[in-house]
Design a protein around this nucleic acid. Structure first.
Length: 502
RNA sequence: GGGCGCAUAGCUCAAUUUGGUAGAGCGGUGGCCUUUUAAGCCAAGGGUUCUAGGUUCGAGUCCUAGUGCGCCUACCA
């Protein structure tokens, strides 16, 4: 960081911060304003839950003593008594601070505490006139002085950029942001439990690859000094996970980050979280069933329902997911295209040109159909839909279909108009795989910088024998967008990638 | 990468439509108030209008360039 870009007092501070610094300096004269000996015994939400049915009289009778701590979010002074609302990781609870119970000196000190300060309070539970559960504070202590003012309490933080750059402020201020990331954590936990319950083994494979593979994408490149060799941040764990299946880990999964050096959008972050899982002695039809079960079970576990509202449209994950081939999907929305036309290279090219859709001139019928599908159909698939039978030319790691070697036993799952999952019966014929790597390498030489490298060790592994295996990747961030009704991937990633601030 | 939009007090927003002394609420400061709920009332504060140029007697407002963010689009999951 350069000297100019650092936040120095003269550049960044305003009168509010100056006043708070002066308060802090006063506090320092009397005691350490950052003590670390207060121990709470209760969370706000557990108190609210435990005592929600107890009346004012019940509480007076029991004299329940509690110690709570949290950040002060609201403050209401009324002379000889005050109310404050503190927030901890579970929720909020109100404090009643008064000359009578807290003592005049402590109450006077409290009046100079600021919103954002972190307080520890001890006292007894009671219910106010209006029925709100509160702590009648007998001992109050400032645990951390906050120097910077919080965003306005009613509207909160709304500036998107500040929400992303200063996520801590967004989390302090916005209930919904907290909810999104709690749901995210629970979804990942539920997926883990779903797979572990089916005897899957969770593993971690390298994030730094000497040969980037497992997907068609541009990698980030770096360099290892001691080894003096180039390394790439992984674009997919696929080839390592299948090596593990070769090694006898017959049900294996990994939830971790992938890195792709490509565009950023509401659906793309340079680093994103993928679930990949592989199961030996299964095929892609099994994966589709498993995926339906997984999404239903996760939805029930996290939200208690399979009903999802995404951007004001509704769906029910309990309904069977549709299954369509690429051409069936095209014909569903454009019945005017005949099957013969959709298998006619000339017709497809004329349509793509008419619709101004980019395509690779060397593509066969399958690739052209896919280009047409991606541009015209994909965004229309709101209800969960498996698109099946992908052309072999765009599926270099997938097993060929027994009846039609031009296509593969592969599917992609679309929900809310975007790809959520991609799965297939794995290609375990080492000679076919070697040939397809060579084809990719040829494309790379011809200038396709997303084409795959030839991975000699992966071929060597296949030559020892990969059992017939089914494998799938699920984009966790996009799944979380769906479950949290978030319009942008940046809303479900705690610290999305942004440009430098200065 | 291309197109469109936005940037004003710590935060949320105004500022009469080619321009004429930059305002309010919240928060903060001082005062009143012992059951408040975005507490209330009174008072005094708080600004490099994103940055750099330009037009003009005069620019938050108009023009040019830049920076950041948002949306759409392209590559992609």
């Amino acid at each position: 960081m350069t000297e100019e870009s650092e936040l120095t007092p003269s550049q960044d501070e305003n009168h509010i911060i100056a006043e708070r610094r002066a308060k802090l300096a006063e506090l320092r004269k009397r005691a350490n304003p950052f003590p670390n000996h207060f121990r709470r015994d209760s969370f706000a939400m557990s108190l609210q839950d435990t005592y929600c049915n107890q009346t004012k009289e019940d509480l007076e009778e029991q004299q329940i003593s509690v110690k709570v701590a949290g950040r002060m979010m609201f403050k209401r002074l009324m002379g000889k008594a005050s109310f404050a609302t503190i927030q901890d990781m579970s929720g909020k609870i109100q404090l009643y601070v008064s000359n009578d119970h807290t003592g005049e000196a402590a109450h006077e000190a409290f009046k100079h505490y600021d919103l954002g300060d972190i307080l520890g309070a001890q006292g007894t539970l009671f219910r106010t006139k209006t029925g709100e559960l509160s702590v009648r504070v007998t001992h109050l202590q400032l645990l951390t002085k906050s120097l910077r003012p919080l965003p306005e309490k009613f509207h909160g933080l709304t500036d998107q950029e500040q929400k992303y750059r200063q996520r801590y402020l967004d989390l302090i201020t916005n209930e919904n942001t907290r909810k999104v990331f709690i749901v995210r954590s629970k979804v990942i936990q539920a997926i883990r439990e779903f797979l572990v319950a089916r005897d899957y083994l969770e593993v971690e494979t390298p994030m730094m690859h000497p040969i980037p593979g497992g997907a068609t994408a541009r990698p980030f490149s770096t360099h290892h000094n001691a080894l003096d060799m180039p390394l790439y941040l992984r674009i997919a764990p696929e080839l390592y996970l299948k090596r593990l299946v070769v090694g006898g880990m017959e049900k294996v999964f990994e939830i971790n980050r992938n890195f792709r050096n490509e565009g950023i959008s509401t659906r793309h972050n340079p680093e994103f979280t993928m679930l990949e899982f592989y199961e030996a002695y299964q095929d892609y039809t099994y994966l589709m069933d498993l995926t339906e079960s997984m999404l239903r079970e996760v939805a029930r576990a996290v939200m208690g329902t399979t009903h999802i509202t995404y951007q004001e449209q509704e769906m029910d994950l309990a309904k069977p997911f549709a299954k369509l081939t690429i051409t069936q999907a095209i014909q569903k929305y454009f019945p005017e295209y005949s099957t013969a036309q959709l298998n006619d290279r000339g017709f497809l090219i004329s349509r793509l040109q008419a619709l101004n859709i980019a395509y690779k001139p060397e593509d066969g019928v399958g690739g052209l159909q896919l280009s047409l599908f991606d541009e015209t159909i994909e965004h229309l698939l709101f209800e969960p839909t498996f698109i099946i039978d992908y052309p072999a030319e765009v599926s270099p790691l997938a097993r060929r279909n027994d009846a039609n070697p031009a296509i593969t036993d592969r599917f992609e799952l679309y929900i809310a108009g975007r790809e959520i999952a991609n799965g297939f019966s794995e290609l375990n014929d080492p000679e076919d795989q070697a040939a397809r790597f060579l084809e990719q390498a040829k494309a790379k030489d011809a200038g396709d910088n997303e084409a795959m490298h030839y991975d000699g060790d992966y071929i060597r592994a296949l030559e020892y024998g990969l059992p017939p295996t089914a494998g799938e990747g699920i984009g966790i961030d996009r799944l979380i967008m769906l479950f949290t009704d978030s319009p942008s991937i940046r809303d479900v990633i705690l610290f999305p990638q942004l440009r430098k601030e200065d």
